[in-house]
Design a protein around this nucleic acid. Structure first.
Lengths: 228, 228
DNA sequence: AGAGCAAAAACTGTCGACAGTCGGCAATCG
DNA sequence: CGATTGCCGACTGTCGACAGTTTTTGCTCT
């Protein structure tokens, strides 16, 4: 009741496709494959000790998530994001988040506010504990995921989750080196403040600023990484 | 060429996966498969005279587009939309279209306005010519697609195209019987009027009304179809 | 030595086959 | 007569293989 688990509570052996998809996702996010690099189905299947069929299906899945691109008769390539696409991605994110927060302030719920509040506390704790960046990014995304979940619109949530994969790809493009650890976590308090104020305009301003900062952070980071 | 022959649709020139995807999409939109119906890979492959591999990949593609759902070890089923999901879908559409029209009114371009204008004229012609509903729906979607295209944000366009497949599914749930032929086509003039006014608030009101009408139309239509 | 061409290697798209699993049906037990 | 259990058919998940295409390699000619 506390957690709505979509899957069965019992052990369900996951099929190879999902496992390969997770493996590839991690490999791409951790930059074990370079952007634009070609993925050979045969060698991948060989490395994993399986046949090509599950590899192909997993690759198709990642293609639909925007992590891979396929060219006919050429195979799959790790998606290489152009600088222009970064702006597009964050612009779409802005549209989604504006809609979500507008819904939340319209149908205010203390329970939702409490859940979001707990998540921000968690983010601050993790930031202070000096966890690696991957964990911090995940907790950040989780906060926003909670927002979309709280709207009750599953299709909206799905749109955000689809976008999340590309957001992780954006982050992955930046080198590991950078600062600003807990200020990012703390900045989410402002969103909650705006929500609690009950003013739609404040919420819009807050989310515009929040996403704008994130966008600038990523764009500048990628730019520096490309110059280097 | 528009109708797939019932006997044995010979598919052999393009990518098999894409062709099967198109074939299945048409079959679902035309309600040749009932919502919730199970799709057998073997029988489908047999009907099309091909092997299961392309069928599986095409089904995965349609799953990512929301036309099919897959249950592990059970196969693929035609997505059966709940009434609640209809609201979610149009709510997301509202978020996307608000964002698009806001962008267009901010970066006004007479060339864009001309293209949209031509499309509305075309829609009115088609409505007067008494074409079938499928064609009218496609032209309607094409108008909105032009809007997203004009924003220059490809990711936003992709989000709309993803949603378009589900919108077609919504329409397909309604029975063929209904009226309001050219009034829908003409209603798009109001969007153009709002755009030309250059007022962001007018645009937002116009798109809210436009999408709201479409949503109510679909929800009521599906409700009537279910009662019947 | 460099450019162009041809052969080969590698890869993808597609196919048929096998094994494990799921749902339905019938036989058995209470 | 109803509920349970074992069996059977059908189907999915996965595999290895073949054919056509693309890319690489190696050779020849200028």
């Amino acid at each position: 009741m506390s957690e709505p688990s979509d899957t069965s509570p019992f052990i369900q052996q996951r099929n190879l496709v999902d496992q390969v998809a997770d493996y590839l996702t991690q490999a791409i996010i951790q930059r074990r494959y370079a952007p634009g690099e070609r993925l050979s189905e045969v060698s991948l299947a060989g490395e994993l000790g399986i046949s090509r069929a599950p590899v192909r299906e997993a690759a198709r899945l990642l293609e639909s998530r925007g992590l891979l691109v396929s060219r006919p008769r050429r195979g799959f390539f790790v998606r290489a994001l152009e600088a222009r696409e970064l702006g597009d991605i964050f612009d779409l994110r802005l549209a989604l988040e504006r809609h979500a927060i507008e819904h939340l302030v319209k149908h205010y719920d203390t329970e939702v506010e409490k859940r979001l509040s707990r998540q921000v506390e968690r983010m601050c704790e993790i930031a202070d504990s000096g966890a690696d960046e991957g964990a911090r990014i995940e907790e950040d995304l989780k906060f926003h995921r909670l927002m979309f979940e709280a709207t009750g619109n599953r299709r909206l949530l799905r749109a955000f989750e689809d976008l999340s994969h590309e957001l992780r790809l954006c982050i992955a493009l930046i080198g590991k080196t950078h600062e600003a650890p807990d200020s990012i976590a703390g900045s989410h308090w402002w969103l909650l403040e705006a929500l609690k104020s009950g003013d739609a305009r404040s919420c819009r301003n807050a989310i515009d600023y929040h996403i704008g900062v994130a966008r600038d952070y990523v764009i500048q980071g990628v730019h520096e990484a490309q110059v280097r």
